[in-house]
Each structure stands twice: as structure tokens, then as C-alpha cells.
Design a protein around this nucleic acid. Sequence first.
DNA 1: GATGAATGAGTCTTCATTCAT
DNA 2: GATGAATGAAGACTCATTCAT
Lengths: 194, 194, 194, 194
Amino acid sequence: MPRLKEDQLKKIYEERKQQITLAAVRIFAQRGLPGTKISMITAEAGVSHGLFYHYFKTKEELFTSLVREAIETSMKEMDSLSQLTVSPIEKIKILTQGMLDENGAPYFMLLHRARNFEEVPEEVSQLIQQYPVDVYVKLLLPLFEEGQQRGEVADGEAEELIASYLTVLSGVMVLGKGYVTPQVDWLLRFVEKK
Amino acid sequence: MPRLKEDQLKKIYEERKQQITLAAVRIFAQRGLPGTKISMITAEAGVSHGLFYHYFKTKEELFTSLVREAIETSMKEMDSLSQLTVSPIEKIKILTQGMLDENGAPYFMLLHRARNFEEVPEEVSQLIQQYPVDVYVKLLLPLFEEGQQRGEVADGEAEELIASYLTVLSGVMVLGKGYVTPQVDWLLRFVEKK
Amino acid sequence: MPRLKEDQLKKIYEERKQQITLAAVRIFAQRGLPGTKISMITAEAGVSHGLFYHYFKTKEELFTSLVREAIETSMKEMDSLSQLTVSPIEKIKILTQGMLDENGAPYFMLLHRARNFEEVPEEVSQLIQQYPVDVYVKLLLPLFEEGQQRGEVADGEAEELIASYLTVLSGVMVLGKGYVTPQVDWLLRFVEKK
Amino acid sequence: MPRLKEDQLKKIYEERKQQITLAAVRIFAQRGLPGTKISMITAEAGVSHGLFYHYFKTKEELFTSLVREAIETSMKEMDSLSQLTVSPIEKIKILTQGMLDENGAPYFMLLHRARNFEEVPEEVSQLIQQYPVDVYVKLLLPLFEEGQQRGEVADGEAEELIASYLTVLSGVMVLGKGYVTPQVDWLLRFVEKK
DNA sequence: GATGAATGAGTCTTCATTCAT
DNA sequence: GATGAATGAAGACTCATTCAT
């Protein structure tokens, strides 16, 4: 029988896993799947490379689970906008700020990499196909349409407007250091009426 | 006719080199340096992998020379804007169109990869440091200032506006397939006055 | 265009492949799949470990193909007995000699390992299930029945006799060095009448 | 009652050790030394892998001690034949039955593996050299010679006959599942006179 | 005694690069 | 110039072993 309570073991397990996961997100985001070596992740996490395999089956498996997580998180965040009790344009502002947030960036970067570049595991390809940009567009459609009715959001084909705006936001997010991040208010020019 | 023969050989040499280079740009742009295998390049170019080394010393060397070329080309293009005899906002439109041009995209992608991600050869790091985004900003500054004076371009700190716009354009370019590419006129909202 | 004729390349390719294969058979037979390291095979074959992967996809793939080959060869050999124009007991003697033959032993050892021991690739398990000992028994049944009718072969349930004899022969073959190989005439006592 | 407690601990110790040992014999016999992972043994024994190292220093040490045990047991069994008060051929029958006994098989398999295959620890090699098949032959020689004198055992060079018979029995034993185990009476044909 | 987290040596495998032809 | 056989450094992954709890 173990001296350590099951709880304690569980806690250690989850903490270590989280620790490695966080390191992995950062490095995957920066270097991509083929550019990321296990040794980079474990060095960043401060553990031995052997421990990686105590927690994850393969590099690909971890990458895949991170992409899955990123999709879920981004869907949830966009969805949660509808709960807020502010005007549409305010919601769009919040969305914009959220997407430019430093902390979220690595996840978006991951998605970007999964979506466009590189050799990715089959499962990632499938996930990406299941959640094309279009899904986000549909999710945001009511918000933008309401904004148009209220005269807050620029007229025109709402779906294209949303898709274009998401492209811009994603692009900005993906670039990261080396580029100047535009002010939120400037970015909103793309969608504001007049 | 040894002369003729020499010319022919030279021509074949250049053609082959170009053939491999074009393949390399595409694949480097899509997969990055570590994600690109020599075999991918040579397969795409339709030659044996051994031949690669007749034309290039190493994978890194090719990557580096492509980055150098990309920098030169982009500098030249921006510079050439000043020769045109159209209004500032028109020039910015042309710039925008140029950057979104399909053909140019791979080069920009390459630059993007060199600028942000991945392990790159030392020489590439140096090139990138010599040509930060700021250099482009300075290059475009007269154009935007003139635009502001004429009331065509949005007010505000011109350098930040340029840098931000370049971020937006670069971001859009980098995303590629999987995202909706915004229309040029729509993108111009970011810099247009009113 | 290659300087070497396609034939020559093909020849080199086949020779090298054969060279590695032979080394592999010996070592797999002696050490089994998990006991065989790629470095052992390539050292025995006198090539670099990298070359192994020029000719084979994985260690498992090679093992599998060898098992397949072993099955085919053994089936063919038993089948070819029926072509001979000698008495049944003579054929059984030839079979016995053939199975004890040093050269064939590694292949049988391989089959034995695949049949009984060790972790083997899924495909090997399937092959082994498709070709149980029973298949050999059926193949030899006419031969033994004719022998019984002629009074050359011991009476009794022919199928069990064959199966038992194959067990004995396989066992002897599998043991190899460290044990005394029984004389063929002595082994024939198991099946000879009286 | 520290005394009682000590006894109990000792008992638990021995039981656990036995439990792991039994699991190890089975798996070593089936998979060989390199094919056996500590985790397989501990899973089979139903304990954590860490516990293995409370009872054994290394995998090799356990394997070696098992081989030693197998040698001792087999020597003892053959030796005990001479105590019996039955005819030589009866004794040979008992020997045969003993060797085919399911329970003993794993030990013989172990010996077989140690004798022929695989990478074994230096100490095992030495044990095997100290107890070649020849030792068993010498042990059984009086028995077979008596059998020949009585006309129960086939004529001929007794030592070769014994060695050959041991080969046959060992072979049958080693094959295990997948093969038909011959009946004892049928195997005796090999040594019986007539 | 017992557990499982942690480590690192050893293998498998990939792939950039060289080189004989 | 062109090819593909050959090499070996580097990276992914496994697993025996240690050790804190």
C-alpha cells in the first residue's frame, strides 16, 4: 500500500502533466511540430526526457490533444460572448482583445500551424476539417447581424465581414514578436460602421 | 564549338537550379525549415536527391539565400512605389494588392518563418536583425505622411499606423488556405481617413 | 541519366538486400525478434545501420517477410516430395534429412519462434494462424497412408503419427548446437513399421 | 511479540518472492531474457514494478538464479531415478513422462534458452558450460547400459543413444503449444529394443 | 513493505550529406 | 551532370533501475 495518499499522487501527476503541457504549447507554437524536439520541451519543463513518456504516448499525441483543446477553448470563448450584456460592438471589442491576448496566442498559433502548415497527424487533419473557420463564422453571425441592425457594425455581407475580420485577427495573432501589434481600436475600424 | 556547348551547359545549370529553387520556396514556405526534407524538394522538382548537392551546399544555405532574396525583393517592391505617379492612397492600394498576390506569398511566408519561428541558421538571424520591420516602416513613412497631409490617410502616429498595417497585411498573407482572404478595399479601411 | 546501367543498380540492390537478409535470418533465428538489434544485423552484414533502412522499412517488417518466406518454402518442399518416384518410407527419409539440414534450420527456427515465443508483429500472428501445423499434416497425409498400406509405415492413426513426428523433427531442429543431433535412421524408428 | 511479527514478515517476504518468481519463470520461458520486460513479470504477479527490486537485484540476477535452480532440479530428478526399484525401461518411461510434464516445461524451456539462444549473463554461460548435455548423459549411462544388457533398450552406442533421446525429449518439450505433444509410449520407440 | 514518479542508457529510425559510378 | 547506394549524426522512444514518500 502506498504511503502517499492517492490524492497526493494524483495531484503530482496532474501538476507534472500540466507543467510539461505548458512547456509544450509554448514550443510547439513557436517552432511547429517538426521543429519541436522532445528535448526542448523537457528542458523547458525542467524534467528528464524519459518523464515525457510517462505522461504522453508520443509527441504527435500531445500535439493532437493540444489542438483539440485549442479548438474547444476557442469555441467556448466565442460562445460565451453571447452571455454578456453589452452592445454588439462592445462584444466584438472584447473578442478582439481576447484574441490578441498574449496568453491565448500560443493556442491560436497551434491552430494556425495545424490549419496551414506542416505535416500533422491524421487526427489533427480531421479535427481541422471538422472545425473550419466557417464554424466560427456561424457562431458569430447573430452577433454581427444584431450589430448591423443597430447600426454599430458596417453594412454588407455579414458572413464575409466576419470571415475577413477573423482572418485579420488570426493573422495578427500568429505573427507575434517582430511585428507591432495594432491597437484594438484601430482593428475595430474594419467592422465599425462609418 | 566548345563555346556553344558551354553556353548550353550554363543554361541547363541555371534552369535546373531555378527548378529546384522554385520547389524549395514553395515547400519551405509551407513547411518551414525543419519540416522540409530534401527529398520533398527534389521530389517536387522531379530530380534525384543527389542532384540537390550539385546546386546547393546545404539545406540551410539554400534557405538562407532564399531569405536574402525575399528581403531584397520586398525592399525593392516597396521602394518602387515611390516611382509611381498616383496618389498616396492609390500607392498603398497597390502595395496591398502586391502583398496579397499569390505569387509573392511564398516569399513572405518564408520571411515570416525566418522572423518568428523555428531554428534558423545564424546568417538568417543576422539578416532578419538587419532588416527589421522598422526598415519597411521608414521606407513607407514619406508615402503615409503625404497621404495624411492630403487627408487620404487616417490621422495619428504615422509610424505606428504603418507598422500596424504591415502587421495586418503580413498576417493575412501568412495565413493562406483555410482562411478567407479579405478584399483589398476592405483592408484599406484600416488606413483610410474617415 | 545514370552512368550505371539500370541492370547494375538492380544487381547491387538485390545483392545488398540478400546480404542483409541472410545476416538477419541467422541472427533472428538465434536471438529472436526482441533479442536481435539492428546493429547486430548490420554488423554481421558488414554495412552501416543506416543502410538497413534503405532496404527495409522496419525490423518487424523484415521479420515478417522472413516468416512468410519460411512458410512458403516449407510448404513447397513438403509438396515437392510427392513428385519423387521413390517409396513412401524413402520420401519420409528425405523429408527427415531435409528438415535436419543445417541450411534450412534457421528458417525453421524462425517459424518456431514465430509460432511459440515472443512478441511478434500482428501480421506474423495471422500468418501463423493461417498455417498451423495441421496444414502440414494434411499435406503429408497421402504419403503416410500409402506407406501404411504398403506396410512400410507403422499402423495407427496416421494424422496423429504425422503430427507427432513433425513435433519431434521440429524440436530436434530447433535445439541446434549444444545438443546431439540424432541420426536419421534412428529418427525413422518413430514411423517405420515394426 | 516481536518474534511472531518477524516470522510473519518473513513469511510474507517469501510468499511475495515466490509469487514473482513463478511469474518470471513463465514469462522468461515464453519470451526469453530480452523479450521479457520487468513490467510483464510484475503485471503477471500482480504487484508494482518497483516491488521487483525489493526482492531481486536485477533482471539478469533473477534469470541466472532460475537457470541455476533449473539445472539443480533436473540433475536431482535424473539422479532420483536410480532409487526406483523398477526395470530400466520403466525408469526411462518415468523420465520421459517427467520431462513432458507441463509443470516442468517452463524450467526446461529456460534451460533451452540459456543453452542455445540469446544474450545471457556471463554467469549463465558458465553454468551452462559446467553442465553440458554430456553431464546428463553420464548420469543416465548406467541405466541405459543395464537396459541394453537386459535386452530392453535398443543396441548401439549407449552414450549417443542417450544424447539423441535427450535431444528428442528436449525438443518436444521446448516446442509447446502449436504442436501436438507425442504420447509417451510412442516416444519410447526411439529407445526400445525391437 | 509498497508504490509509482523520475532518470538515463540503449535502440530504433530518419534524414542530411557524401561519393562511386 | 545525374543517380542512388552508403554513412552517421541526431532525435524519438523504451525500459531497467532508483528513490522519495
